[in-house]
């Protein structure tokens, strides 16, 4: 089809672009611009300082700790929740009648709960002495852990909670992918003598690639945007061991009122996220049959 230049076409796009421009893109460019300024309580009038904010960010040990925390969060929640989701999706995809919807519902419902409410609930569950988490772990022979109190385990507490909250959604996406695989593939494979693991390796897994890619992207985005749970459960503590990128940005922008620094971190954050997603598409996306 020929490329056209008709006003009506752009008219259709306009409402979406209008709101996007005002509430997403202009702010992003504003951040990039402001990141070149010193602008905080000590410097109430912004003044231009080239890239000194960026240098300051990279020199701050806390920034690297925050980045590390966020990477730990990403590298644990993503594989754990994805493999749990895939595993359960395969189980739930078996023929089992009415009871399936019961399982499905109880595995998926955490997605429907507001993060704030879920976080509140888990603070209560994690309470070292009175919470049910430690109580039942005790039965399994685990030592008492002061989950959210303890520097070594606080991030793990947030990770556990986030997996609980998110894997159900991923599971549904996988389930949709599984149901899209024509059953005659398996029948053919069975005739050839391929069973169990081989079926999974050569049929299920490749056919699930689009779903996997989607879940992966969503998981990356959400693992870098993690905020609400940290805000409610730990406020980044103890000792900044649960401080993550968005929380760190929030601290600079709305707590310290260091607007220059906040903008710098925001810009870095957006760049980093885009690069990560681009990499995923480059490395994995190409091998995936995915009609865009």
């Amino acid at each position: 089809m020929r490329r056209t230049f008709r006003l009506t076409t752009y008219g259709y796009l306009f409402p979406g672009l209008f709101f996007m421009g005002i509430f997403t893109f202009i702010p992003v460019f504003m951040s990039a611009y402001l990141s070149l300024f010193k602008w905080n309580i000590n410097n109430p009038e912004p003044h231009f300082t080239w890239f000194s904010n960026y240098i300051e960010v990279f020199k701050a040990p806390l920034f690297w700790l925050v980045l590390r925390n966020n990477l730990i969060y990403a590298f644990t929640t993503i594989p754990l929740s994805m493999s749990l989701a895939l595993f359960l999706a395969i189980l739930i995809n078996q023929k089992m009648g009415w009871i399936r919807s019961l399982y499905r519902g109880s595995l998926f419902y955490p997605t429907m709960i507001p993060m704030v409410a879920a976080a509140m609930l888990w603070v209560w569950i994690f309470n070292p002495g009175l919470g049910i988490f430690n109580y039942y772990l005790g039965f399994l022979g685990f030592p008492k852990i002061e989950w959210l109190y303890d520097m070594r385990y606080a991030l793990m507490g947030i990770i556990i909670m986030s997996i609980w909250k998110n894997f159900g959604y991923y599971m549904l996406i996988f389930l949709a992918g599984l149901q899209g695989i024509p059953s005659h593939y398996y029948e053919a494979a069975a005739i050839e003598g391929a069973t169990g693991w081989k079926q999974f390796r050569y049929i299920t897994f490749p056919m699930l690639a689009p779903a996997t890619l989607f879940v992966f992207i969503v998981a990356i985005i959400s693992s870098f945007q993690v905020f609400d749970q940290v805000f409610v459960m730990t406020q980044g503590g103890p000792g900044d061991r649960t401080n993550v990128l968005v929380f760190y940005i929030y601290q600079h922008a709305f707590r310290f009122w260091d607007l220059g620094m906040g903008s710098t971190l925001t810009t870095l954050f957006i760049l980093g996220l885009l690069v990560a997603i681009w990499l995923v598409f480059r490395v994995i996306g190409r091998r995936v049959y995915y009609e865009v």
């Binding site: 796009l13 996007m20 997403t24 893109f25 951040s31 985005i221 905020f227 922008a253 957006i270 996220l273």
Partner: peptide, 20 residues
């Protein structure tokens, strides 16, 4: 334009609070 729409998916709302 399509790229713009795609990018918007990925920019967290938290990054745009202050200007908004």
């Amino acid at each position: 334009f399509f790229f713009l729409f795609l990018i918007q998916m990925m920019i967290p709302i938290h990054a745009t609070f202050l200007p908004n």
